[in-house]
Each structure stands twice: as C-alpha cells, then as structure tokens.
Computed example of a mutant assay.
Amino acid sequence: MQELVTAAIAVGCAGLVYLASAVRIIKQYERGVVFRFGRLLGAPRLPGLTLIIPVIDRLHKLNMQIVTLPVPSQEGITRDNVTVRVDAVVYFKVVDPTSALIRVEDYRFAVSQMAQTSLRSIIGKSDLDDLLSNREKLNQGLELMIDSPAVGWGVQIDRVEIKDVSLPDTMKRSMARQAEADRDRRARIINADAELQASKKLAEAAQQMAHTPSALQLRLLQTITTVAAEKNSTLVLPFPVELLRFLERAQQHPKPEPEPQGSFDQAPPAPLTPLRTTADAATAATAAPEPPVPESVGAPPQAAQP
C-alpha cells in the first residue's frame, strides 16, 4: 500500500510538471503561432491561457502593437544637385502573425532596410524645395514604396514621417540671403502701397481745402497747437505755400507804369548828350592832329640854331 501511495504521488508530481510545462499565457497585445514537429499548427492562438505539448510543440509569440522604427540618416543628391541628409521614422504593425513569422526571417530588419532604400530613392527623385515645403506628398509616396512589399510579409505600414533635412552651410547661407531679399522686396511693395494710399488721401484733402481756404489756416493753427503742447523752447512756424504762389504770380505780372501828365502837343525832350570824363577828353586831345600854322607875309625867318 505504501508503494502505491508513493507511485501515485510520483505520477501526480510528474503530471504537475508536465502541465506546468504545457501551459502558456499569451498577453492581450500578442498572438501565438504553434509549430508541431516543425509544421504550422492551425490558426494563431488568441490571448489568454493555452496549452501545448511539451517537447513536441513550439510556441512563438508575436507583438501586435504599433512599432516605432527610426530610419538612420541617409545622404543623397536631390534632382537639382543639392547634397542633403534626411532621416525619417516608420510606424508599422503586424496584421498577419503567420506570414510575418514564415515568409520573412526578421520582419523588423526587413522593414528597416526597405525604409532606408525607399528614402534614398525619394531623395533622388525630389527637389530641395519639395523636401523642405512639400513633405506631406513625400511622406505619402514613401509610405506607398515601403507598404508594397511589406503587405506580403504580414506587416502594415501605418505612417511614415520625414523628421529632419540637413543642408550644407553654404546652402543655408544662400537660402538666408534669398529669404532676406524676398522680405525686403515685400517690405518695399507694402511701403509703396502705403505711400500711394496716403497720396490719394492727401490729394482729396487738398481738393477739399482748395474749396475752403480758411481750412488751411485752421490746419495751420491746429499744427501750432500740437507743437506747442510738447512744451518746446523753440517753436517752428511753417511758411504757407499759398503765400509763395501769390508772390510768384506778382513777379510774373508786374504793374503797368503810369503815363506822364501834360498836353500831348508838347514836343518830346531833346536827347541828352552823354557826359565825357576827364580821361576821355585827354585821350581825344592827344589823338587829334595839330592844325598847320599859316605863314605870314614878310615874317622874319627863324634863326638857325647852332
């Protein structure tokens, strides 16, 4: 009897060990694929408690969560011959555990290599402006390039994002100068537009003041009041432009000279002889020849000088 009890205890212990080795627990975010003698056994096991035959069966658990896979920086030349370095990130998940385990050796490594190859291909097909400003379209194209072969591996690409685009320093300086020039151009256009609008308003104000001249004087007084409110020691008064125009018109149209009083039968005055200075008289006397002296009859001859 004692031997039977001992044997039963031994069998019970063996059964407990066998049961412990056969019991497997699959978590909620996992699926289990069972191989018996190296062959696939049925559909994947669902989450919860499951049993397998020890030594005969092999249970492989696959994570069904979304995996975040960073893509290393890839250096390439864009279509417009600019050298850039681009890195990205891929979000994917396993939708078919059987295909992910049977059709590809390591689905993570396969997705990583496919993402790097596709990223280099996208760099070569795109311009620099597309990489910097049109990333949504590039992300969609990159997702399609990776998702096409990944469907046969039981993997679904959820999303692909380009994280950063590294440019050479010379290209950064060139782009900075271009952006500065563009902003300067827009600032000048805005300033010119403001000047145009201000000139139109000033022209309307000038026309309004032209119909009412007293408005200009009121505006002058208002300006003086505004300047005097600042408590300055020096007050500058503007010179009215209308006064300058009045003076200009007065110079262009002089007043006519008054006519001399008297009878119209009076003879006009004789012309005045111009005065001659002493120097002019001396010059004329020197230049005029002396008249010849007439010889008188019976005049004694002049004695010859020794």
Rank of each mutant, 00 (worst) to 15 (best):
L202V: 11
R45P: 03
A303P: 12
H253S: 01
L247Y: 14
A10I: 15
L272T: 10
A14N: 04
M171N: 10
F264Q: 12
V104C: 05
G42N: 12
A206K: 14
M171R: 12
Q2T: 13
A150K: 04
N191V: 00
D193M: 00
I66R: 11
D147I: 01
L244K: 08
G32H: 00
D147C: 03
L275G: 15
K27D: 14
L119K: 11
V23S: 13
D127R: 10
R135K: 14
R31H: 03
I189H: 00
T225G: 13
N63Q: 10
A282V: 14
L119P: 05
Q156A: 05
R79P: 02
T273I: 14
R173P: 07
L220V: 04
L243P: 04
W153D: 06
V55N: 02
F239I: 07
E242N: 15
Q208L: 06
D96K: 02
V104P: 06
V95D: 07
A203L: 12
M171E: 15
R177C: 14
Q197G: 08
P294D: 07
D182A: 15
Q208T: 13
K61T: 05
D280L: 09
Q252N: 00
A150Q: 03
R188A: 06
L221C: 15
L247G: 08
G38E: 03
A176H: 12
K201R: 10
S199L: 08
Q2F: 11
Q208S: 10
D87K: 05
A150C: 15
R103F: 07
P149W: 06
L46S: 12
K137R: 11
E290V: 15
G42A: 11
T170A: 15
G76H: 00
P301K: 07
L128P: 09
P289A: 12
Q156F: 04
S166L: 05
T83C: 00
T117M: 12
A100E: 03
T50I: 11
G48L: 09
V11C: 12
A110R: 08
L131R: 04
V84L: 04
D57K: 06
E3D: 14
S133H: 02
P274S: 10
F109K: 04
V84P: 03
L237M: 15
E3A: 14
L16Q: 03
K27T: 11
L247S: 09
Q252A: 06
L243Y: 09
Q28F: 06
A14S: 05
G32P: 00
I146Y: 03
S73T: 02
L132P: 05
I189K: 07
L46N: 03
S148E: 13
A10N: 08
A110S: 14
I162H: 01
F239M: 06
P44V: 09
N134Y: 12
S21Y: 10
D169S: 10
G124I: 09
P97W: 02
I162F: 00
V11G: 12
A110W: 01
T68A: 02
R276I: 13
L101I: 01
Q266C: 11
T6P: 01
L218G: 12
A115E: 02
A205E: 11
V90D: 03
K255W: 11
S21P: 04
L235E: 06
E295G: 09
A88Y: 01
R177W: 15
K93Y: 04
R36G: 04
I102G: 02
V165E: 07
V89G: 02
A250C: 01
P47S: 08
G154Q: 08
T78M: 01
Q222Y: 05
D265W: 08
K93E: 11
V11M: 13
T277C: 07
F239K: 02
Y29V: 14
A10H: 09
